[in-house]
Amino acid sequence: MNPQPPGSTAHGAEPTHTSQPSSKAARWRLAGALWLLGLPGVVAVVWALLPPLAANAAMFPLPLWAIVLLSGLQTAVLLALAVGVGVWLAPRVGLAAPAVSAWLVGQPVGPVLRAQWLPGVLGGLAGATWLWALSRLAPEALKPSDPGSAMPLVVKLLYGGVTEELLVRWGVMTLMLWLGWRLAQRGKGRPGAGVVGVAVVVSALLFALGHLPAAQAMAGALTLPVVAFVLVGNVAFGLVAGWLFARRGLEAALIAHVLAHLLSHPLL
């Protein structure tokens, strides 16, 4: 293999950090930090599921506490797998979590974030505008009859903004880019723009498909308007987040996703 030099990115952007995890201990520290970063989102989404689970507790073969525990453990394990994949493969294809990596080795985080915050903020503004525009076009089946049943903001921020990015961008997109790099370039050189683009698109599509079960639960059925709305809406933002990850680093995608939910929430 011929991985990119530390500090480079898959698109050839300006370096955003000076350190990549180079030892097993450093990789374990990065994995632990990222897993802990995504864990509050796991707790938040399980907490949000408590009311519907409690309402249907009589239908479950296990006690409510066991259902809740298993649900949380399942998501936490998936998060651990995604984090592990990213920590293992990201340095090989020029992807990184530069701010977290800098913090773990005692380097200043501010200079690293300066290269990420503006693209992240612009991505968040674009995402919030997109979410607001989409909400005007949402199928009736996806509009909650009771506004109080909508997903709490804390879940959108912690799970949607952070945990989803670790699962989809850090885990899935990194894996897609590594596979494309190995297949198209035999693992040599830095991933080309076409390989990066395919990884961004595929991960955005998978990100969108992952929202279909929740849409089905809300709408009752996956009709064509519901599927089209969910796919178009989420693929578009997935492309933005994927580009930010490839170009600037994981934290830029995190900033954009969190900010998109934060700014759009009062408007929806």
Rank of each mutant, 00 (worst) to 15 (best):
168 V>D: 00
100 V>N: 14
136 R>K: 15
138 A>M: 05
109 V>P: 06
96 A>Y: 02
90 A>Q: 01
168 V>G: 00
118 L>D: 02
125 L>I: 09
96 A>H: 13
167 L>D: 08
104 L>E: 08
177 L>K: 07
200 V>C: 14
137 L>A: 15
97 A>S: 14
96 A>L: 02
143 K>S: 12
109 V>C: 05
99 A>P: 00
193 A>G: 03
192 G>A: 09
180 G>M: 00
194 G>W: 13
192 G>K: 09
93 V>M: 01
167 L>V: 14
124 G>D: 07
158 L>C: 02
209 L>S: 05
104 L>P: 08
105 V>Q: 10
180 G>N: 04
191 P>W: 01
189 G>W: 07
151 M>K: 12
162 V>E: 03
183 L>Y: 12
183 L>P: 07
101 S>G: 10
194 G>V: 11
116 Q>D: 08
118 L>Y: 04
120 G>K: 06
124 G>C: 10
155 V>I: 07
96 A>E: 13
111 P>I: 07
105 V>Y: 01
103 W>M: 13
182 R>V: 06
112 V>I: 11
207 F>L: 06
175 L>T: 02
177 L>Q: 02
153 L>F: 00
141 A>N: 08
92 R>D: 10
185 Q>V: 11
93 V>T: 13
123 G>D: 05
102 A>V: 12
125 L>E: 01
164 E>V: 15
94 G>Q: 06
161 G>T: 12
152 P>Y: 02
171 G>E: 01
130 W>E: 05
115 A>F: 03
191 P>T: 05
173 M>A: 09
108 P>V: 11
122 L>Y: 07
